[in-house]
Structures are given as C-alpha cells and as structure tokens.
C-alpha cells in the first residue's frame, strides 16, 4: 500500500474557490499566515468572500491584500487592532465584522472540524457579546450556544508537510492552523518543506494528512514572512 500524493501547483489548488465562498485562513499575526496562498487568492479574484481569521494582519500584509482588493464582504475574527485599514472598512460599512472571543472562535472551528453542531460556553455572559445568542441551561448553569463553524476552503501554513499532507508546525505559527485544517470541505496547505512519505515521523504529525486536499511547496519565502521591524 502507498499513501496518495497530494502535491499540487498553487494555481490548481486555488482554482476551485468561488465567489461567496467562506474561507478559513490560519495565522496569528505573521506566524502561520499563509501569505503565498493569500496572494494566489488575490490573483484568482474570487469576490464576496467570508473570511474567518483570528486577526486582519497589518496594512499591506496577509489578508489585508484581500481587503484592499475588495474581495471580502464579511470577516469573522477576534481582533483588528494592528490593522487600521480593516477598522476603517468596518466603520464605513464596506465589510461586515463579527467579533468572537478568541478561544471561542477556536472552539467553534474545532467543533465544526469534529462534526459537532455547537459548543456551550459561559464566556461573555452579562456583556454585550452575549446579545442575540441562544441561552441554554445545563446542570443549573446558563450557557451561550456558540454554533460550530465550517468553511468551503481552508488556507493553511505548515512548517513541514509530506506529500500525503501530514503536517507539522513550529513555534507560535501553529495557532488556528490545525483547527482550521479539520473544518473545511477543501483544505489547501502551503509548506516550507514538502517531504517524501515518511519524512515526518508518525509520532510528530500535528495534522493527519486525511484532512488535507492539496499540498503546495513554498520554493522561496517572500519578505512578508520575515521578522517585522517596528
């Protein structure tokens, strides 16, 4: 038996994204943000997208290119503090923004990836973040119902992939990537190194390759991946 090879050209991997798709994008700041796949989505041009991403990167970086290009209708996120451009788009009504508590966004995605319908949480009870949310009582305690999130496509950055799509991450570049890699109908991975089968020890795999559809090797890393000088 031999595990299938999922390596792909970046254009082929991105080609299936359609207007109005929901796209999960990994990353927290620069670490783990799939900068190259994002540029390919800009070139591809799909519009009216709903993005699910922890943050909006910074002006001129990461998903800000999609915002600048007018491809985003809605953003499900936790914090836009480092991107004044994104805040401007939100305030002018050009994009709709839904804020989540960070760990609740993670759990909603994890639930989506695990085939569940929702999670129950008491985070935000008694604040305006609870407004409009269904409340259920469990063992005498009120909880908010936080619906699971799934996406049409997930764009993932990994440190290493094998050709089957087994993934390993490094440092704080892990963040939302392993969760999103389980929660989309089609999962596209860019990896800094693509290894042959067996190139990642089975015990060191963070995301099993069964979740992954396309593996794209990064031949070079653009300046957007580098340490940000402030």
């Amino acid at each position: 038996m031999r595990l299938p090879d999922k390596t792909s050209d970046i254009e082929d991997a991105i080609a299936g994204i359609k207007d109005c798709d929901t796209v999960m994008i990994g990353g927290f700041g620069v670490p783990g943000t799939p900068m190259t796949l994002i540029h390919a989505l800009v070139d591809h041009g799909a519009r009216n997208l709903t993005l699910i991403k922890n943050d909006a990167n910074e002006p001129g970086m990461g998903i800000d290119h999609l915002l600048q290009n007018g491809q985003v209708a809605r953003l499900i996120t936790t914090h836009l503090g480092l991107n004044s451009h994104a805040i401007g788009l939100m305030n002018s009504g050009a994009i709709k923004v839904e804020f989540n508590a960070q760990g609740i966004l993670a759990e909603r995605i994890r639930a989506g990836g695990a085939g569940l319908g929702a999670v129950l949480s008491d985070i935000g009870i008694g604040t305006e973040l609870a407004a409009g949310k269904q409340v259920v009582e469990m063992n005498g305690t009120p909880y908010l119902v936080e619906p699971a999130l799934r996406a049409d496509v997930a764009l993932i950055h990994a440190d290493r992939a094998d050709v089957f799509g087994n993934l390993a991450y490094v440092g704080t570049a892990q963040n939302f990537n392993p969760l999103m890699a389980m929660a989309a109908r089609r999962v596209i991975v860019e990896a800094e190194a693509v290894l042959p089968l067996g190139g990642i020890n089975a015990n060191d795999v963070h995301t099993p390759g069964v979740f992954v559809d396309h593996v794209v090797e990064l031949k070079t890393l653009s300046k957007e991946y580098a340490v940000v000088q402030r």
């Binding site: 943050d55 996120t77 936790t78 914090h79 836009l80 503090g81 805040i87 923004v97 804020f99 508590a101 960070q102 760990g103 609740i104 008491d122 985070i123 935000g124 604040t127 973040l129």
Partner: peptide, 14 residues
C-alpha cells in the same frame, strides 16, 4: 475604539 477583544474576555472571566 472597537478593534475586538481578542482573548481578553476569557482572561478576565476565567
């Protein structure tokens, strides 16, 4: 000022 609360709500509450 409304950039979103990030992880602040969970830190404060838990």
């Amino acid at each position: 000022f409304s950039p979103g609360a990030g992880g602040g709500i969970e830190l404060a509450q838990k």
